[in-house]
Amino acid sequence: MNKKTLPPPPDFDSPEEARDIIHFLWSKLAELEDRLNPNSRKSSVPSSQQALHSKAKNTSPSRKISGKKPGAQPGHKGHRRQLHPVEDSATVEQYLPNKTCHCGCCVIPHLIMVF
């Protein structure tokens, strides 16, 4: 890999010219440091591949805090999958494991219903 050679430093004719060049170089340095530490908002790296400590915080002011706890609120009618009634089943079979497991320990079975 070849190293890029830098031009010689500029000569200044006045303090104002030196100040202008320092400001230009300072802004260039800030830009390069921003590129050195990319995050998902400034690069093509997806946020799922970023380290947890470098992920950007959600600072959007558009969401207002409601003061409610997360999750279902009091009075909310739950949506659950209903169990199939046993009476509608054609057969009910009971499957129990062996009395001992592969290591020789005693197995205490619990009732398992399969529909």
Rank of each mutant, 00 (worst) to 15 (best):
A51L: 14
A51D: 09
A51E: 07
A51C: 01
L52F: 09
L52V: 09
H53Y: 10
H53G: 09
H53R: 15
S54T: 14
K55S: 04
K55M: 11
A56V: 15
A56G: 06
A56S: 12
A56Q: 13
K57A: 15
K57L: 14
K57T: 10
N58Y: 06
T59R: 13
S60W: 14
S60H: 10
S60E: 08
P61N: 11
P61R: 15
R63W: 07
R63E: 06
K64W: 05
I65F: 14
S66T: 15
S66F: 02
G67A: 06
K68P: 00
K69C: 04
K69L: 12
K69F: 04
K69A: 12
K69S: 04
P70K: 13
P70S: 08
P70V: 05
P70H: 01
G71I: 04
G71C: 01
A72F: 13
A72L: 15
Q73T: 06
Q73A: 12
Q73I: 02
P74Q: 07
P74L: 06
G75N: 07
G75S: 08
G75E: 01
G75C: 07
H76W: 05
H76Q: 10
K77A: 03
K77G: 01
K77N: 03
K77S: 01
G78L: 11
G78N: 08
G78W: 01
G78S: 06
H79T: 04
R80K: 13
R81A: 05
R81S: 00
Q82T: 10
Q82F: 03
L83Y: 06
L83A: 14
L83W: 05
H84E: 01
P85K: 11
P85G: 08
V86F: 13
E87T: 02
E87S: 12
E87N: 09
D88A: 14
D88T: 15
D88P: 00
S89F: 06
S89E: 02
S89I: 03
S89V: 06
S89K: 11
A90C: 03
T91E: 08
V92R: 03
V92G: 01
V92W: 05
V92N: 03
V92F: 00
E93R: 13
Q94I: 13
Q94R: 12
Q94K: 12
Q94N: 09
Y95N: 09
Y95R: 15
L96A: 08
P97A: 04
N98L: 11
N98A: 15
K99A: 14
K99R: 10
K99W: 05
K99F: 06
T100K: 14
C101G: 13
H102M: 12
H102R: 15
H102K: 15
G104I: 10
